[in-house]
Design a protein around this nucleic acid. Structure first.
Lengths: 158, 158
DNA sequence: TTGTGCTGTATCTGTTCTTGTTACAGTTGT
DNA sequence: ACAACTGTAACAAGAACAGATACAGCACAA
């Protein structure tokens, strides 16, 4: 919902791939299997994976038996990378309709807002840059290990 | 547009009121006059002002000849205050549909995301807290003074 | 070369959110 | 009582989004 659930979706996918890579049986990583974990439609996953591929975060092996995998080590993919790949829209938007240019405030406020928004957005980005997909995977597994999980099975997906 | 143009609207309104307060002729600050500067409908302004009033940033004098004014000094209203009054929605949203709890990643990822999002959002908020409406007004007037403004009149609005 | 399995993308639907607008009752000073 | 403005409901139009179906395209295997 709200603003940016695409970010959560992308992090989920990448974390899933990072976990999947550790396995040895190597069932192919298809959009269908990922969709089961995220609990949504495979097309939604493919749309997100397409963006991640365009930003060089994942690769795809086409053809029968192919599948998705991380293009780089999970420890080198920061959440800022994911954020950049997930959203084109700025956090803050300017006025829906252009202000009255004949007014002191209406004339001058937009560049001021832009400066303030840019700085705040940069602070947000710096914070996101501090975590990697490897961190998320480690913490996520820890949450699983600590919790009283409803199901007893320790496999990635169904 | 995009995410949060309500923030820009609220900053514009408060800056306008901060400027208006400096005047001596004291034409009443009505939603109609503010709407002219923002170039929108008075009801849109009233909706925003209602939220700002609920957060204690502005006050209203009802009745004939009444009008809006800042509840506090412009230098004491930070953009974080405005942000809090403008938006209930978080910057980042979690998954649209709950992930599969039978999956390692699906089970454990949401609290991890929440922690990361909270930290990033806090960085954004700290950045916004560094500017006040008084700062915005000063810089906005400077932009006006520096520019080659289309109209020659130096009055607030029409 | 044919078959298989998966991707990439177009398209449609239902939902939600937002802006802009009209309308009108409520409030308050003159 | 009147004038002036607010607060809010209601509505239309538009954008954005998730979810879903459908199908052509691609690459490997046999």
């Amino acid at each position: 919902m709200s603003a940016n659930s695409r970010m959560s979706l992308a992090v989920h996918i990448l974390t899933w791939l990072a976990y999947d890579r550790r396995g040895t049986d190597k069932e192919t990583a298809t959009s269908q299997r990922i969709a089961t974990s995220v609990n949504t439609n495979p097309v939604v996953i493919r749309r997100s994976l397409g963006r991640l591929k365009d930003h060089g975060l994942v690769t795809i092996d086409h053809g029968k038996g192919g599948g998705w995998s991380l293009a780089r080590d999970a420890a080198s993919i920061t959440l800022l990378d994911v954020y950049c790949a997930s959203s084109d829209d700025p956090v803050f938007g300017l006025h829906a309709s252009d202000p009255d240019a004949e007014c002191y405030v209406g004339y001058g406020i937009q560049p001021v807002l832009t400066r303030i928004y840019d700085r705040a957005t940069e602070a947000l980005r710096q914070s996101l840059a501090q975590d990697t997909i490897a961190d998320v995977l480690r913490e996520t597994v820890a949450v699983y290990a600590a919790g009283d999980h409803p199901p007893p099975q320790p496999r990635v997906s169904s």
